[in-house]
Simulated scan of single mutants.
Amino acid sequence: MPKDMTITRRGLLQCAAWSGLVAVPRAAAAAGGEAPYPNHPVTWVIPFAPGGATGRLSVLICDRLSRRLGQAFVLDHRPGAGGATATRSVASAAPDGYTILATSTANIISASLDSAPGADGSGDLVHVAGIARMPLLLLINKNLPAKTLAEFLAYARANTGKLSVGSAGPGTVQLLSAELFRMLGGITWSVVQYRGSGPALTDLTSGHIHAMFDNTAVAVDLLRSGKVRALAVSTRERAQAFPDLPAVAEILPAFETSGFYGVDAPRGTPKPIVDLLNREINAALADPEIRQHFDEIGATPITGDAGVYAATFRAEVMHWRKLVPQVSAKN
């Protein structure tokens, strides 16, 4: 069973505390004869409220980076506008490697809405490294009578307009998954917007909303505690970590979504710094403890150099560029 990955102030302080325990294994040369990078704490910006998958994955990676590079990687939550607030703030930051962005599917979806050159984020940000891809789970309040995906679809159709679904914010994979499910399932429900999946999950467990899609990194603890019920996974095939859960596609064949996470930095960040961060994030992803945690939540590491990650990012943009108009046209 994985360790509790809940984001707390104590966790952030522990992440920072590791910085004094090890020497820097590799340092990127700074321009102008300055001290090698990093020589002071790095701000790791998370676009959502605490409690979501982006934050939980960031805790794992920041802990390893702090240990290996000898400086604190400090988590800074800046929720708002489905991730756009944080993205804009990082894009306008100094390109010195001391402000970096934890990207998610929200960045992909935002880029997919604009077909202009550079809409994949390359105009304002440089792609540094991937972290993971993972399924989403269709979660419902445990007091609903539905016990299976088929039963839930039937229940939603019979109670048209009476159910509410939570969203982590506009333009997020949680919202687009819910809208795709609504469209393909022929149902009607109301959407409640939150500033991250953490607050939405709180309302799901208390019964203020009835359902939501969310990433396995967040949902697994709630499932094991019996606070919510999972009905299906969002990926095309069943997830090895959740073999008893069907894929939504088994009933709605055109349904397929997943969460996507990585790291970006302001445009103009020196290549030696980008390369260093890429190497160290890849080293973190090879850590046996992180690998075990990924296996338990059904996550697949996204490895490779910055160029490989940039190509993967662009391919993901193209996937959503085809999907988003289909969902939007039905709204």
Score class of each variant (00 low, 15 high):
Arg26Met: 09
Thr148Gly: 06
His40Met: 05
Pro253Ile: 01
Gly307Asn: 06
Leu223Trp: 00
Gly196Glu: 00
Ala17Ile: 05
Gly198Val: 05
Ala30Leu: 07
Asn141Pro: 06
Ser177Met: 00
Pro135Asp: 05
Ala35Tyr: 08
Thr103His: 04
Asn215Met: 14
Ala17Asn: 07
Ile108Val: 15
Leu252Tyr: 06
Ile251Gln: 14
Ile61Ala: 01
Thr303Trp: 02
His210Arg: 10
Ala30Tyr: 12
Ala28Leu: 04
Ala311Val: 08
Gly307Arg: 08
Ser164Gln: 12
Glu256Leu: 04
Asp295Lys: 11
Ala284Tyr: 05
Ala299Arg: 11
Thr6Glu: 14
Lys227Pro: 00
Leu69Glu: 02
Gly32Trp: 08
Asp221Asn: 04
Leu149Gln: 10
Gly123Ser: 14
Arg238Tyr: 00
Arg279Asn: 11
Ser258Val: 01
Tyr155Asp: 09
Asn282Ser: 12
Val22Tyr: 14
Ile140Leu: 05
Cys62Met: 09
Ala132Phe: 04
Thr188Arg: 12
Gly304Trp: 07
Val173Cys: 12
Trp320Ser: 09
Leu101Gln: 04
Gly52Leu: 02
Ala150Ser: 09
His40Val: 13
Cys62Ser: 13
Gly169Trp: 10
Gln14Ala: 14
His293Met: 13
Leu13Ile: 14
Val24Tyr: 00
Arg314Pro: 11
Thr269Phe: 04
Met183Tyr: 14
Lys142Ser: 11
Val165Met: 11
Gly185His: 07
Asn141Val: 00
Arg279Met: 05
Asp76Asn: 15
Arg224Lys: 08
Pro25Ala: 10
Leu139Tyr: 03
Phe313Asn: 15
Leu204Pro: 02
Thr269Ser: 15
Pro50Thr: 03
Gly70Lys: 01
Leu113His: 10
Val59Asn: 09
Ser122Phe: 05
Pro246Asp: 03
Ala168Cys: 02
Leu21Ser: 03
Ala158Ile: 04
Pro2Glu: 05
Ile109Cys: 05
Gly33Glu: 06
Thr216Asn: 12
Leu21Gly: 12
His208Phe: 10
